[in-house]
Design a protein around this nucleic acid. Sequence first.
DNA 1: TGATTGCGCAACTCGTTGGTTGCACATCTT
DNA 2: AAGATGTGCAACCAACGAGTTGCGCAATCA
Lengths: 108, 108
Amino acid sequence: MSSRADRVDAVFAALADPTRRRLLGRLAERQSATATELAASEPVTRQAIVKHLQSLGEAGLVTPSREGREVRYAVTATPLQDAVGWMVTVGAEWDRRLARLRRRLEGK
Amino acid sequence: MSSRADRVDAVFAALADPTRRRLLGRLAERQSATATELAASEPVTRQAIVKHLQSLGEAGLVTPSREGREVRYAVTATPLQDAVGWMVTVGAEWDRRLARLRRRLEGK
DNA sequence: TGATTGCGCAACTCGTTGGTTGCACATCTT
DNA sequence: AAGATGTGCAACCAACGAGTTGCGCAATCA
């Protein structure tokens, strides 16, 4: 029933690992990438990358799609909203902080 | 030197555990609480709570303060900004999402 | 003063997980 | 058809982390 809490849980768990965050970053730059491609830029094995991508996939942060003989991954980014939502409910003056952040981003 | 990345890392690692997030929630409601108090509302030992609070403390999310013979903990909430900042750099149309979120919270 | 209450430290268990290696299977390319 | 390239599966290892129990010490209360 508590699918919302589970989602948040999965997202934070996925984002807990720095390698996973880096992978998400890479996938945000390039539109998509395969596990072997990502493994080239990362100091670990392809298999490790695959596992990370699976974690990210279970959290809904990344979506795989088969293309011929290779599997390309792309960011979904939607479930991050839940995580941010949780953060907001915790902090006190978070409204102001978010506003400041947005201004800083829009002002570029 | 990469203190920024480390901070984000600590925050996400701290937020990865559901118990820790619940503790943060409790501390957000009440102004402050001791480990033993929190242990009463939680199905684990006081010692476990203490460890969690230490993790949260190292992440800068919580601040302890001694008062007589007891130690009270309170949320700091500032470093969450870094985490949100990271999230923003990843997602694509995050500006809009944050805006929607703020509206939903203000309208509430 | 003695009993209680709250905290700190240490050792230990057990499950999870990030990472590896090895091999088999599928899919292009030449 | 043969060789290369990309993925999937499984077993294994080491380290970390959540949680426990036990004990000792400081501070408050009766």
